[in-house]
């Protein structure tokens, strides 16, 4: 009979532990903490990855999985200069970038067999069909260059501040502002058929 190894005993419920404490414990190899981090942030990561990575549901699952495995590997390097959520987004950005590049190449190859026509330009007004407008926005976001799309998704969909997004993207805050602005203008052009704002 082997030695009895009791599980760790109560020192607070998981929901009471800070994100930083969980990440720190993850960095020390505590899988329980990794599970709790997954529970806390998987919805954010799913939403983000699905929006930026041109992905099928299976791809999204894979990317989320890779993100959290990387979180586990890199947890010990967390320096506390950002929130844990921002840091995890930074990990997801890097994971999704690689996938998006290969997917873009694949789509470009597929595109050679026939361009998918964009919908006709239409003014956005009260009479416009909302569902159609949303579909165009979705397409326009998908059509953004990767860097612009990620900045836009982080700041607009995930509601990170420009400073937080800059941390996640490892770039300057001004760069994030510029990318979000360019992304907006491209989306506007795509859905209204207008030209770039000055």
């Amino acid at each position: 009979m082997g030695k009895l190894i009791p599980f760790r005993r109560v020192e607070g419920a998981v929901e009471e532990l800070s994100d930083e404490a969980l990440l720190s414990a993850t960095g020390q190899g505590e899988q329980a903490a990794l599970g709790a981090l997954f529970d806390r942030f998987h919805a954010d990561v799913y939403r983000f990855v699905a929006r930026v990575a041109f992905s099928t549901p299976n791809d999204v699952d894979d990317l989320v999985q890779q993100t959290f495995l990387e979180v586990c590997q890199a947890a010990a390097r967390f320096n506390g200069r950002s929130s844990v959520k921002t840091w995890i987004f930074g990990v997801a950005v890097n994971i999704a970038r690689t996938h998006a590049r290969s997917e873009r190449r694949r789509q470009a190859a597929v595109g050679r067999f026939g361009e998918v026509p964009m919908a006709e330009p239409e003014q956005l007004d009260a009479a416009a069909d909302r569902a159609q407008a949303l579909e165009r926005v979705a397409r326009a976001v998908d059509a953004l260059p990767y860097d612009l799309r990620v900045a836009y998704v982080l700041c607009v969909f995930e509601e990170l501040t420009a400073k937080e997004a800059a941390t996640a993207l490892d770039t300057r805050e001004g760069t994030v502002w510029r990318r979000v602005h360019e992304a907006r203008e491209l989306i506007r052009v795509a859905i209204t058929g207008g030209s770039h704002a000055p």
């Binding site: 009979m1 082997g2 190894i5 760790r8 607070g12 532990l17 720190s24 329980a32 903490a33 709790a36």
Partner: peptide, 26 residues
Amino acid sequence: IEPARVERHGTVVPLGEARFELGAVL
């Protein structure tokens, strides 16, 4: 940062040599 301390419901006893890890918590 204080690492997480978590509550668990189970006890694991290896019968001979065994490799296992405690995973997610409640």
